[in-house]
Structures are given as structure tokens and as C-alpha cells.
Amino acid sequence: MRRFVHETHAQRVVFASGAAREKLAEEIGLLGASRVMVLAGPSEAAVAARVTADLPVALKHDEVVMHVPVAVAERAREAARAHDVDALVSVGGGSTTGLAKAVALTTGLPVVAVPTTYAGSEATSVWGLTEGEVKTTGTDPRVLPRSVVYDAELMLSLPVDLSVASGLNALAHCVDAMWAPRTDPIDAALAAEGIRALAAGLPLVVDDPGGLPGREQALYGAYLAAVAFASAGSGLHHKICHVLGGRYNLPHAPTHAVVLPHVLALNGPAAPEAERRIAEAFGTTTALEGLEALRTRLDAPRALRDYGFREDQIPDAVVAVLPVVPESNPALVTPDNLQQLLRSAWEGATPR
């Protein structure tokens, strides 16, 4: 008999290509906010200024750092308190959304997210903070943005290589959701549709970076991926990448893009039903065949050594990852096969 419990997060989602400024003002109006803190890194300053032009902005905060160091989060929290803000608006990718979540975690302030990448953090109640070499993650309903404004036009300025890495990060949410600790049939359905949309949209982004159809498909797929991941929880792939990112300061999206096929190669044979659904979403005979064909088509990131991970760090990474491997992972994870997985990802070998 089929038995499962599925929890759907309460969140408004607004898809409106070309209308971020108008829709964001409407969302802030629904909150009744009168003193808004806008969080956006320097590279997103112009976009943030444009889409928040109609808001009652009390503070603009631009200290955005990858993996959200605790000290950075504390400074943002203090700024929010000092300016007596009553709502947070994040304009940017996962690091910006993560900073807004860190502020919401301790203040309870509502967040409205305006994503400019396919990171997906805006659709989850997952937060992450880094202190020293350790990245700690958790879930809390306070950090889930009250609403998200998706405007595919804001993605047009995202370079193709970053679009590919960010899109494959979203794809990793889908794959991990197939066998994560809390996965259920609804998560699997969302993840499969997310894979289909991303596999259709990302090649269009590469072929026509200035066109909206590919950007809209990828953004739709990234949202579905994040919703599936939020419900299913962190699987092996995300546990590995969180360790690599926090411990060795590796860039988030490229790390996910590199590691994903190696985790799929390990888990796929041990999870035949999930493997079948992933393959069907790609329209290929096997899941790994579909993923590798897409990665080749996109000229995706291949090797962790290209992003600062050193060969001599592999044994240390194995020791750090093993304690956080989910008990429900379909394949048995051992020191030996984990070391082989990380070595293959480091050198950019063909996943097997």
C-alpha cells in the first residue's frame, strides 16, 4: 500500500516576465511594510535599484558573501535592527537569498525574494551559515520567503557559463529529491517535471542567451526543483557539496554541476525506480546517459580542481562527508567508494 506524508510550504509565487518592479511593489503592499531593507550584492545593485524603485526603502545592504559567513550575517542583522526595518527584499542569487534568510532566522522579518539565478533557495525553508571551515544548515519556517517574484528578463544578464552552472545546480535538486530522506511521490513528480523543463530550457539559453523562452523554461524548472527539494530534504549529493563548499570555499553552483553525475552514477543502480523516472524525464535509455548528454551539450563544468579543490584534500573531505551521509541513501557509501567519487570529480573523469 502507498503511504506517505507530504507537506506543502505556504508561499506566494509570482511569475511575470518583464514586470518585477510592478509585482514586487504589490507584494510589499500586501505585507503592509513601510521600512524595507534591500539586500543585493554590488553586481546586482543596478537591477535592485530598478526593481525596488517603488518601495519604501529604509536601507540598502550590499555585503553579500558566498556561503553566508556568520560574521556577515550578524552585521546584516544588526543593520536591520538599527534601521527598524519591517520587511526584507533580496535581489540576487543563492548567497543573497541566504543572507536574507539568516536575518529572518533571528528577527522573524518577512522576506520577499527576487531571484536572478536558478539557485532555488527562495522556495525552501533551508538556511545555511558558515563559521570557519564548517557550513551548518537547518530548516525553519521563519526563513521561507513569504513570496517570490520570478522575472525571466532579470536572467538575461546572467552569463551563459553561470547560467549553465546555476541550472545544473537546480537539476541537482531534482535528482537528489528522488531519493532524499523525506521523498514521496509528489516530490518525485515535481522533480521529474523539473528535469524535463531544465533539460529543455538550458540548451535554449546556450543557443540564444538573449531570448526569453529558454530563460522562462529554466526558471520554471528551477522553481519545481526547489519545491521538490524543500519537501524531500538533503540527499547525498547536497551533503557532499555542503561539505566541499563550506570547508574549502568552493563556488556553490559549479561544485554542484561537477559532483552531480558522480552521485547519480553511484546511486542510480541502487534506486532503479528513481533511475527510470530520471531517464524518462531526459528522454533517454538511462539517467546517466541523459545527464551526460545534457552536460556535453552545455559544455558544463567538469572538474573540481578547476575551482580550487586540491587532490591532497580528498582524504580530509572523505572524513568530513561520511558522518553526514543520509541513512536512507540507496547505495552503501564507504570510505573507498566515496574517495573514488571525489577523486573522479576532482579530475573530471567520466562518471562510472
Rank of each mutant, 00 (worst) to 15 (best):
V65H: 07
A197P: 00
V324A: 08
L294N: 06
L338S: 09
Q340N: 14
C174F: 02
V205G: 05
A197Y: 11
A46V: 14
G132T: 09
H61I: 00
F4R: 11
G94C: 05
E131F: 10
E289G: 11
E26M: 02
A58K: 10
P56F: 06
H6E: 10
P301W: 07
H238D: 02
R50H: 12
E311N: 09
A20P: 11
A79Q: 09
D84W: 01
E327R: 14
Y248G: 00
V38C: 05
H61M: 06
K23T: 15
A20H: 06
E327D: 13
L31S: 12
A257E: 00
A300C: 05
E44A: 15
V72T: 15
H9P: 05
Y150A: 05
G98K: 01
A73H: 02
A49Y: 09
A320Y: 03
H67K: 12
V89K: 00
V91H: 03
A230L: 10
A180S: 05
L105T: 08
V319H: 05
L168A: 07
A349W: 04
E22C: 08
Y118C: 11
P56Y: 00
D86H: 08
R302N: 09
L144E: 03
W127N: 02
E74D: 15
H83L: 12
G32L: 01
L24S: 04
A20D: 06
R35P: 03
E327T: 11
A230I: 10
D306S: 13
E193S: 12
A46Y: 03
R35Y: 03
P330L: 00
T136H: 14
T130S: 10
L190N: 09
P115G: 10
A271K: 07
V319G: 07
A10V: 15
S43R: 15
E273G: 11
A345V: 01
D151L: 11
A79K: 08
L332H: 12
V64E: 00
L338Q: 05
L341V: 01
N169K: 10
G235L: 05
S157Q: 10
D176K: 04
L236N: 04
L304G: 04
A19L: 15
V134P: 13
A49W: 11
S344R: 13
A199V: 08
Q340I: 11
R310F: 04
R50T: 10
G221C: 12
G283W: 09
V143R: 10
A113H: 08
T124Q: 07
P272K: 09
K239E: 12
